[in-house]
């Protein structure tokens, strides 16, 4: 008990009651580690979201400062944004399916669903890069106005996260292929799917605040 209390002082791996102490101690190791890893990664994700809220606040403050340049209404193509949203939403869904596949050790589910996740994520990224290139070509690059600086920072930061997520996804598929469904690999897959779902949550805020409200102004 004392060892468990030292590594888990806030009882993340166990309930506050003592009734289960004996069985928990016998079985707890694996469960507890997965729970603590997930909790720690959850706290990282929340701090990442807080970082994004800073970019959101900057965008919201600066969105009117177009320096006589183009505003969101002139620039945003909502059809493109709708396709991007669909890509990210479906990739979030297939990522969940892939997580179940890994948990139940069904290779076809895991590899199939994660491949689809990667393809949707890559399609999202391609559309976003295309949009950025198009904006820069039309003279609405990040140096044009404070509005566009904030826009490129916010949306680009999300795009960088998606890029990192895609690399991580490939790494996880390679690790499962090379090492199998080991407990530590499954914990990493749990963290990855949390990361991917959190990116989708940020995208919900992003397409609402930036694109839908920007195009409607």
């Amino acid at each position: 008990m004392s060892g468990a209390a030292a590594t888990d002082p806030h009882r993340l791996g166990r309930s506050s009651g003592h009734r289960h102490a004996a069985s928990e101690h016998a079985a707890g190791g694996l469960h507890a580690k997965r729970i603590i890893t997930g909790y720690g990664f959850w706290i990282f994700l929340l701090s990442d979201i807080i970082m994004f809220s800073g970019f959101f606040a900057a965008y919201a403050v600066l969105s009117g400062n177009t320096a006589d340049g183009p505003s969101g209404k002139d620039l945003f193509d909502l059809r493109n944004v709708a396709i991007e949203t669909a890509c990210l939403l479906f990739s979030s869904f297939t990522c969940g399916i892939g997580g179940i596949g890994a948990h139940t050790r069904r290779g076809l589910w895991f590899y199939g669903a994660m491949t689809v996740t990667f393809l949707f994520g890559a399609a999202f990224l391609a559309l976003e890069i295309h949009e950025f290139a198009d904006l820069v070509a039309r003279g609405a690059g990040p140096t044009r106005s404070a509005f566009l600086s904030a826009f490129f920072t916010l949306v680009g930061c999300h795009g960088l996260h998606v890029t990192a997520g895609l690399l991580w996804l490939l790494t996880m598929m390679a690790q499962v292929f090379a090492k199998g469904y080991r407990a530590d690999i499954l914990r990493r897959i749990l963290c990855f799917s949390l990361f991917w779902h959190a990116l989708d949550i940020i995208w919900v805020a992003l397409f609402t605040v930036v694109y839908l409200m920007g195009a409607g102004q």
């Binding site: 309930s15 009734r19 069985s23 729970i35 890893t37 997930g38 799917s193 949390l194």
Partner: peptide
């Protein structure tokens, strides 16, 4: 009460009946 698989706390992203 003595179910060794019965988690009393869950990680985010994880459900008892993950379906």
């Amino acid at each position: 009460e003595f179910d060794p698989d019965g988690p009393t706390d869950v990680a985010p992203g994880e459900d008892d009946a993950e379906s």
